[in-house]
């Protein structure tokens, strides 16, 4: 009996090992940012329903992880498109080129706002970016000196803020949202501190971009739903989360105005809301024509019925770019324009 099963196992292993290589891929593969994932999957589904091609497979790997997979090479085993919630970095382009990924097209799909929200049962916050910096940076300037963050309550930073302990749930460093938080909140607020101006660049970067480790800033690496659950169970806690989450759960949470501007579709689209960022996807040009449907997927994504002001992505919380930008981006994407750094 054991010989028989052994033989079966050997045959199965052999079959499995050979079958993998023989098949050509007829399905688009997309990786990347978890912020873009809801939009990318919605387009993928609509694209698949149209019936001409198989529904693309979308993996949520985070922006950085997506770039690494995307740039690892050309061929069936590598993804065709990667989503990103920040722009591709020069080092990543270099990594791409090193692995033979030479043609990349960049598409700006729209905007996303980062909101600071808490439970509807909790106190009202009206924040400035500087206050957020003071609440969440590891070291802050007090009395002309850089000291470990002394603030325990919001009211210690500014008497107008609630007398509640500072507790912020934010994305872990593997999220593009975290990069955006650093870039759009911590860095600009830091630049305003006169005491830090003369610091040497690396030291300044460290001073500005390091978040608290004393429990006031809690990193959540899983997904946004976890952040949302934490803030609903703890009304005084603040969550750093993307706009689409706010939009889907307005009966439970509310957003704090930032620098006096409330996060709305219009405020983010018109760039009035200070903490907004563009979202991207990148196309591997060498795969166009090799994997069926890449071009058609891009066309679906860049059509007004998807990313337009009243398109189905707007229902998912994507903030559309202005008409002119969309037109320009769509033309560039469909012609597979080369990435310009």
């Amino acid at each position: 009996m054991s010989t028989k099963t052994l033989a079966v196992a050997a045959v199965a292993l052999a079959a499995v090992a050979t079958a993998g290589q023989a098949l050509a891929r007829d399905q688009i593969r997309i990786v990347g940012s978890s912020t873009v994932y809801p939009f990318s999957t919605a387009v993928a589904e609509a694209f698949g329903k149209a019936g001409k091609f198989k529904t693309p497979v979308v993996e949520s790997t985070g922006t950085g992880g997506g770039m690494r997979l995307f740039c690892s090479g050309v061929g069936e085993t590598f993804p065709d498109i990667t989503n990103a919630s920040r722009r591709i970095e020069p080092s990543e382009v270099e990594f791409c080129t090193k692995n033979g990924v030479t043609g990349i097209t960049e598409v700006v799909i729209g905007y996303d706002g980062i909101v600071f929200m808490n439970s509807k049962a909790g106190p009202d916050f009206a924040l400035t970016r500087e206050q957020m910096y003071k609440a969440t940076a590891k070291d802050v300037v007090v009395g002309g000196k850089l000291v470990p963050n002394p603030y325990k309550n919001w009211s210690d930073i500014d008497p107008s803020l609630p007398k509640e302990p500072i507790l912020v749930y934010g994305p872990a460093p593997n999220h593009g949202t975290r990069d955006a938080y650093v870039e759009l909140v911590l860095d600009p607020a830091c630049a305003k501190q006169p005491e830090l101006k003369d610091m040497e660049k690396a030291a300044k970067k460290k001073a500005c971009q390091t978040v608290r480790e004393d429990g006031a800033w809690v990193e959540v690496s899983e997904n946004y739903t976890v952040i949302q659950q934490k803030i609903t169970s703890n009304p005084a806690a603040l969550g750093v989360i993307t706009f689409s989450y706010l939009d889907q759960n307005r009966d439970k949470v509310k957003a704090a105005p930032v620098d006096g501007v409330i996060a709305t579709f219009d405020a983010i689209a018109s760039n009035k809301y200070p903490v907004s960022r563009p979202l991207f996807f990148y196309i591997k040009k060498q795969h166009v024509g090799m994997v069926p449907g890449v071009k058609e997927y891009v066309t679906e994504f860049t059509s007004d019925k998807a990313w337009g002001k009243e398109g189905y992505l707007a229902d998912k919380g994507l903030i559309a770019s202005p008409d002119a930008t969309r037109k320009e981006q769509a033309a560039n994407a469909r012609n597979l324009g080369e990435l310009k750094m």
Binding site: A19, G20, Y37, A44, E45, V57, V58, E59, S60, Y224
Partner: peptide, 26 residues
């Protein structure tokens, strides 16, 4: 991963039950 098509063979991309739970939870 987000996979819409029902797999027809063990070589097609597919999710599994716990993965589906994880994706929906997020």
């Amino acid at each position: 991963a987000f996979i819409v098509d029902i797999p027809k063979s063990p070589l097609d991309p597919s999710a599994v039950l716990p993965v589906q739970i994880y994706l929906w939870a997020g």
